[in-house]
């Protein structure tokens, strides 16, 4: 980073620390914080979408769709979600490869499962063995995002399903009295009003999502936990910056990062709740109306 860092062995004290903290590997470490934030930014809307779909399916008048929606929301109850995080990426990966195998190599006769191996034809491999490193990394990250979206989507579906039922029945009846079709009353009356009922559950879910991000490490993504272990481990003198085992301090840093993230989220969500309560037929909305008079 700095020109003075060319020969670390001559450095002392603060200079050493400044050079140490700006080394190439530390830059990768700082970037991995962005990976976590990117995961949050992608997963939250994706999970919301999955959840919305699940809740709509669970309310559906078509029997198989309703059963599917109910099963999806009930799935994650009672089962530790880490099981899903270990299961979904591998299952998805094998599912995709199997589908591609069926499409791309129809004349392949050997079975896909041979004892303890899962063998598909080379053209069906995901990603292709010839593709560059970044494709492999992106694919791994995408699988992780999918696993998070599936698991958190089920929880969001639970919350949204409850919120849809919490909207006062009179509101829907009014919509019907105005001659709206079920589709119209759903989109124009129910959906705009349900968010205030869903918000406590969704904000809780957001907090849980933040706290689930270190599990990326288990999925093989080079996230902050990976780098904290990597950089914190004791380095002998063959390394440019030898130091004893500092993992404790790195993990302390991660702990503070997460505490700050949850604290900031709490503040933002409190403001959002106030904002969404505006004009709603709830106690909080009523209090705002009284205060404005």
């Amino acid at each position: 980073m700095f020109a003075s860092c060319a020969d670390p062995s001559t450095l002392e004290g603060l200079n050493w620390l400044a050079c140490y903290l700006t080394s190439g590997k530390h830059m990768a470490f700082y970037q991995s914080f962005l990976v976590v934030l990117a995961l949050l930014a992608i997963t939250a809307p994706a999970a919301l979408l999955f959840g919305f779909g699940g809740a709509m399916a669970a309310r559906s008048r078509i029997w198989p769709l309703r059963i599917f929606g109910r099963a999806y929301t009930a799935m994650v109850r009672g089962i530790p979600d880490i099981v899903f995080f270990l299961f979904v990426p591998v299952a998805m990966d094998q599912g995709f490869e199997w589908l591609r195998h069926k499409v791309k190599c129809p004349d392949w006769t050997e079975p896909v499962r041979q004892g303890s191996d899962f063998v598909v034809c080379p053209a069906a491999k995901l990603p292709l063995s010839t593709s560059p490193q970044w494709v492999h990394e992106t694919y791994g990250f995408a699988l992780a995002v999918l696993a998070f979206a599936v698991v958190f989507g089920a929880f969001a579906a639970n919350v949204l399903y409850g919120a849809m039922r919490a909207v006062p029945r009179a509101q829907i009846e009014t919509a019907e009295a105005y001659g709206m079709t079920p589709r119209q009353s759903f989109w124009r009356v129910l959906v705009p009003q349900m968010w205030i009922y869903a918000l406590p559950g969704l904000s809780n879910l957001w907090m849980i999502l933040i706290k689930a991000t270190p599990l990326l490490f288990l999925l093989g993504v080079q996230d902050i936990v990976y780098w904290a272990r990597e950089l914190g481990g004791s380095k002998t003198s063959i390394f440019a910056y030898p130091h004893p085992d500092w993992r404790l301090y790195y993990f302390l840093g991660l702990l503070i990062f997460y505490l700050m993230l949850t604290r900031v989220s709490e503040a933002v969500l409190t403001r959002l709740t106030a904002r969404l309560s505006h004009g709603q037929a709830t106690l909080a909305g009523e209090a705002q109306r009284k205060a404005a008079q």
Binding site: L215, F217, V225, D245, R247, L252, L255, L259, T262
Partner: peptide
């Protein structure tokens, strides 16, 4: 309450292990 509810259990395990090893 803030520290234990605001941070991931996963990180708490790591941190505790490192602290106990030291």
């Amino acid at each position: 309450i803030f520290v234990f509810r605001g941070s991931p259990l996963f990180i708490q395990f790591f941190l505790a292990y490192q602290a106990f090893v030291l």
